[in-house]
Design a protein around this nucleic acid. Sequence first.
DNA 1: TTTTTACTTTAAAATGGTTCTAAACTACTT
DNA 2: AAGTAGTTTAGAACCATTTTAAAGTAAAAA
Lengths: 132, 132
Amino acid sequence: MDNKIKLRNAGLRPTKQRIIIADILLNGFNRHFTAENLQNEISISGNKMSIATVYNCLKKFKNAGLIKQVESYTDTAIFDTNNISHHHFLNEETGELIDINNNEINLVKLPDIPKGFINSGVDVIIKLKKNN
Amino acid sequence: MDNKIKLRNAGLRPTKQRIIIADILLNGFNRHFTAENLQNEISISGNKMSIATVYNCLKKFKNAGLIKQVESYTDTAIFDTNNISHHHFLNEETGELIDINNNEINLVKLPDIPKGFINSGVDVIIKLKKNN
DNA sequence: TTTTTACTTTAAAATGGTTCTAAACTACTT
DNA sequence: AAGTAGTTTAGAACCATTTTAAAGTAAAAA
């Protein structure tokens, strides 16, 4: 269970609930998910967690940099276990996201950043429509 | 009032309410706004409209291609009167969006589009953080 | 250890944006 | 002028998320 250590290193107290979530999310496989998706996976793993706790944990994990929240065109927050900078295809009909590796996109020209700000990340979203 | 004609050309019955909204939105100045923003502007213009109607009209305007809905990292839908393909700066602290003209960004390499789909638009979002 | 303290979890209520309902209304057609 | 199909509305419903406040737990102090 070195997820206990991972949590501690991230500055999070390793509670029973956070360890359950870390065991599900931080296993090396990347995925996109909603709070409800995660609660279902927790149930499947034989555990039970209040939705408030799921949201609390997701916020903590996100602020600690263990997961990211990604853009969404729907009204449900989508999280991503892939912390490496990358981009997304968006299926406009379903809202589903598919990862695009950074090296598959080349942005050669960027606009001047407004005064007083710095660029804190660039997201490219390629919207997809069914080809009929 | 050629907004009446604009609405008809877009396939929308030009009701009193839709004309009020068209007069506010389709005046050549581009802006980002929420449903609530728009309802406030309607009040300021001396009119009164139910929030349900505001939402109904925004949906119709959007499907007719008169306005766009843009990505949002907050839980409130943001609309844009700028129909020309363009990108955005996102102020991460406030959620505010600033337009970026298409010619200020140059994407020279794009990934292969998944089979069965076509590219229906690319959004680039440059996130901004205060520079301290 | 035991005690203390600060943080965490929880069910349930509250919140806030958005959509639905169903009745009244209005633009357009006949 | 009458019919009909689409539209507006207030209010209820919905649903994702956050808050509340009380009970529980991990870590620190004694």
